[in-house]
Design a protein around this nucleic acid. Structure first.
Lengths: 142, 142
DNA sequence: GGGTACAATGAGAATGATTATCGTTATTTT
DNA sequence: AAAATAACGATAATCATTCTCATTGTACCC
């Protein structure tokens, strides 16, 4: 999967160099308020009349991740959920029922900048997820 | 980051109640220094003469997670890696080459306790992972 | 304008980790 | 010890993701 990085800098590229289909994937993702799977993106884009294949959706998402425009997290059953990168959204996930509730804030906001400087590694984004048991589930036998 | 729940409440059971095979899975996991896949655990246990099936490894890991004894993170290619819960180990993962290097510390150590109190959710553990481009990869055209 | 090189795409096959099934074997309860 | 229940193993099924490869699109050069 090709990359096409801007040789002049080490930072994510502008969206300008994206193909039509890649842009379609990105804008669809931006319109949704929640993180979604590749499969669902595919279905929705088709319903809207876009003509593209499932492989292209995956390829586009990989590319967009590489460019730092999209991030993903993985659900308990191994499905990757994608979202535009700007939303610094984290979750509390119940090990028992599997539900995730979003955390209203990011406990790492300040720290990431320090980290950026201290590591020889260009950080694009992070994922953070808390696991445990949610309130309803604590009241019922496992 | 551990949990050690009060046995009088609706909490995970002590390791005492684990079956032989479940214990085998747990102790094998504790002996390894790195996070490993279920498949690898299975292979290694068989090599050591343990007689158990792959399905049992998965079932045991699920159970151990539910009890707060084991945690997992998911690699970029969708494989779950398991580790005993006490090690608060996070990673810097390169989007380009896929390599992960462990971060030497946890930026959340202090915060998690505050969080515990502020949420109606029993936190067992968290996963934190940074994504970006590693030093070597920034120097080569993709 | 035509040609060449290479990137992007689609359809479907292949992969591979995880789950489900189901008959069997332990383990607990009575 | 029988009955009830939980754990187990082997293997089939599932399903998200990746691979293959033939085709199409695009950029660049002559």
């Amino acid at each position: 999967m090709t990359v096409m990085l801007d040789p002049s800098s080490h930072s994510p590229l502008p969206t300008t160099r994206l193909t039509t289909k890649q842009k379609a994937v990105l804008t669809q993702l931006e319109q949704l308020q929640e993180a979604v799977s590749a499969q669902r993106l595919y279905t929705e884009l088709r319903q809207q009349g876009e003509s593209l294949g499932l492989a292209t959706v995956y390829r586009s998402l990989d590319l967009l991740k590489l460019r730092g425009l999209v991030q993903s997290r993985t659900t308990a059953d191994g499905e990757a959920l994608y979202s535009p990168i700007q939303q610094d959204q984290h979750y509390l996930t119940c090990l028992q029922c599997g539900n995730s509730v979003p955390l209203g804030f990011c406990p790492l906001q300040k720290m990431e900048n320090q980290l950026r400087r201290s590591q020889a590694f260009t950080i694009y984004y992070h994922t953070l997820e808390f696991f445990g048991v949610c309130e309803p589930c604590t009241h019922q036998a496992p």
